[in-house]
């Protein structure tokens, strides 16, 4: 199927800051694509290039088969965008803002609008200045989700939502996918990406460091094991592929490269396993592996201030 978004070698500099340094991104039509990276890694800048708000210095970006800069207006009829930090007009009510954005977009489904207002528990009569960050986010989400856009571009859309509203949001994204829409979801919230995304691109310092399905990424990585054995597992530390070994009382915790999992299991079997749990790495661990080692200044956490805007 044709790609909804196709970006290769994107470069964008602001003064001396290199926000994008050759970024690649491919979003297939109909998928929910997670766009992950720490603050200032270039997620919002990429999205702004895709919206034709910024002009890239180098590289190629295609969106729904068109040029995001030249064909901005025509393409925007087919997409809906929720910025990471929604600012509204203080004197305009939420309901008015939703209708306005919908009309600028090319129309929204009024029944769906009311339904979404109900689901997100949003009072449309309040002036935007009285809204919290989460409520401003809901305004943009309702306007986007009530449109018939074939591509939803969501930049950290749940940063201000409470957990209940996050569930509502996840339901709506699943509905959108079921309807055949494509979703580009930039996020810090790993559980959200794990729950929603078919494929994930991890970016860091303006470059894509990894792309794939979650299964593919796990294949490349390690399994976390907690095991209690009758005999002390003293030989584990010397085995190839074993990392981060810790022993507390009779329990041993470690990570193991999947290529060496078989040998480690065979060794443990000889010691008499009393209990064993193992789990695939969480996205959090993936993140730490990619950014934790040499980028300690920007540790990714699940709940975070929204992306830095260059």
């Amino acid at each position: 199927m044709a790609a909804a978004v196709s970006v290769t070698g994107l470069v964008k500099t602001f003064g001396r800051t290199r926000a994008l340094a050759g970024l690649d991104l491919e979003v297939a039509t109909g998928e929910v694509h997670g766009f992950l990276g720490p603050n200032g890694s270039g997620k919002s800048t990429t999205i702004r290039v895709l919206l034709g708000l910024l002009r890239p210095d180098a590289g190629r970006a295609r969106l729904l088969g068109g040029d995001p800069w030249r064909d901005a207006v025509a393409l925007h009829r087919r997409l809906a965008y929720v910025p990471g930090d929604v600012t509204l007009w203080p004197a305009i009510s939420g309901g008015e803002a939703i209708d306005l954005l919908g009309r600028l977009q090319g129309g929204l489904d009024p029944r769906r609008r009311d339904e979404l207002l109900e689901r997100f528990d949003l009072d449309p009569r309040k002036k935007a200045r009285t809204y919290s960050k989460g409520n401003r986010q809901k305004v943009a989400l309702v306007a986007a989700l009530a449109s018939d856009a074939e591509l939803l571009v969501l930049d950290e859309p749940t940063a201000g939502l409470d957990p209940l509203m996050e569930v509502v949001f996840q339901d709506d994204v699943r509905t959108a996918r079921a309807e055949g829409r494509t979703v580009l979801l930039s996020s810090h919230i790993l559980a959200e990406v794990e729950a929603l995304c078919d494929r994930v691109s991890i970016i860091r310092r303006g470059r894509t460091v990894q792309t794939g399905t979650l299964a593919e990424m796990r294949h490349l990585t390690r399994t976390a094991v907690v095991v209690a054995t009758r005999e002390p597992a003293s030989g584990l530390g010397a085995m190839p592929g074993v990392h981060d070994l810790r022993t507390d009382d009779d329990r041993v915790r470690f990570d193991v490269d999947n290529a060496h999992l078989d040998a480690v299991m065979a060794y443990l079997g000889g010691l008499g396993v009393r209990s064993l749990t193992s789990h695939p790495p969480t996205l959090e661990e993936l993140f730490l592996r990619h950014y934790g080692d040499d980028a300690p200044e920007s540790p990714p956490t699940a709940h975070h201030a929204h992306a830095a805007v260059p």
Partner: peptide, 15 residues
Amino acid sequence: STGRAELVLGTATDR
């Protein structure tokens, strides 16, 4: 500077 222009220009509104 507040990002409201971005919200509008993200719709099918010509610059």
